[in-house]
Design a protein around this nucleic acid. Sequence first.
DNA 1: GAGTGGTCTAGACCACGTA
DNA 2: ACGTGGTCTAGACCACTCG
Lengths: 250, 250
Amino acid sequence: MTESPVHHESPIYRRIADRLRDQILSGALGDGDRLPGENALMNEYGIARATARQALAVLINEGLAVPKRGSGVYVRLFRPIRRHGSRRLSREQWAQGLAIWDSDTRGRSYAVDEVRIAREAASEHVGRVLGTEEVWVRRRRYSVDGRPVQLAASFFPADLVEGTAVVLPDTGPGGVYARLGELGHAPVHFSEEVRARMPLPGETELLNLPAGTPVISVTRVALAEGGVAVEVNEMTLDAASYVLQYDFDA
Amino acid sequence: MTESPVHHESPIYRRIADRLRDQILSGALGDGDRLPGENALMNEYGIARATARQALAVLINEGLAVPKRGSGVYVRLFRPIRRHGSRRLSREQWAQGLAIWDSDTRGRSYAVDEVRIAREAASEHVGRVLGTEEVWVRRRRYSVDGRPVQLAASFFPADLVEGTAVVLPDTGPGGVYARLGELGHAPVHFSEEVRARMPLPGETELLNLPAGTPVISVTRVALAEGGVAVEVNEMTLDAASYVLQYDFDA
DNA sequence: GAGTGGTCTAGACCACGTA
DNA sequence: ACGTGGTCTAGACCACTCG
């Protein structure tokens, strides 16, 4: 009774997914092309609806396809923004009154909304880095070409920025870094931590993410002269919309 | 006696997923704890098996839980490696005979396997950057504490490294960068591009990735004096195992 | 052996987009 | 109006893990 060498073929849904994936990666199906739908797969392979759905779900969860209600399943488009990690934060940028965002988008239209500014108790992590218990927070969402691509929350020590333009909706030319400079706390060094993970439901909603799209989480700490942390910025990026670039010397 | 579903609210499977997610994020269910299984959810909520599966699939695809055949569904563990983008590639590192990997793992055991070295025709992208049509490639896989965490492929201009230790399995103290230095092409500048996406099936297999785990794709170009590209390194990291850190001045 | 997740069938009704 | 994907039921058999 031992035995039965159980040879394992791939399940049907996986073989169908493999075949469709090949067509996408080989370019036989291009950006935005329509995939065979549930009904088409049922007929073509003689399978149940749930099995056809399962095959499509594989590609959707891989981020290769996006379903459109009442219409079909389509090959996903990919058009990333290049975000320069160091050049964009050079002193010349904000010293000349440019928004950081300007160096990323190269003329593509962008917008900021969902701006919320508040004084809050610092989270454990932020409080430890900034060495304070009360912070001012600037939360906002960035969109490019009408599509939301990034959520950001900047934290400042409350005592440092209280009553300044840093806590106003419009921070003026050069943004908060220029204002911090005027306060004698110009950032001179930055440290960024980059992670990637699947989005939480709130992020999925605010960034309008289809299934199969990870987010890139960037946590930046801005340090003034003497190594004093003056800002923590927690950013959540649509991974399908970004390429991060970092340059450094050996 | 079935109740008609109310469609102004979230679907059942999503509400169940939300509840379980809350328990995970609030810490009520900790790392490695067992979630209620399919049968438990069927009984508890009076739903069909497929619906219970759907609820669990949400959490699995979010990377919050991992299914174990014949056993159950468990809260996922998270234990990242910190990878320093600039410090680790400083000249002192490889000039002192240290492997780059040493600066990442802080004493945790690591291993390299699946090493394959070959002379190949360059891909379109790599060929353009290196300005050559033939390349030597070093492919390998890194594991930490017995778990695979990274795939890497380093490309070098074939003419530059032909017959040198760069194309040998053991590249000697300080690794390929030290060897390139001896050839008069020491890297002086690095440029890294960071992306995140869902893994392809081959990557899922080699990195042993559970569903819901993105990969971080890092493409590094090493430039010698005069801006000549001497290496392109394409890395694929298990996103659940890494935190990338980049430091730079304003 | 009992329980678990993995795959699959054959139906059903719904909300939605497009024509 | 029709076809699409979204949700759900009620079964079934399998391979696997664990006590």
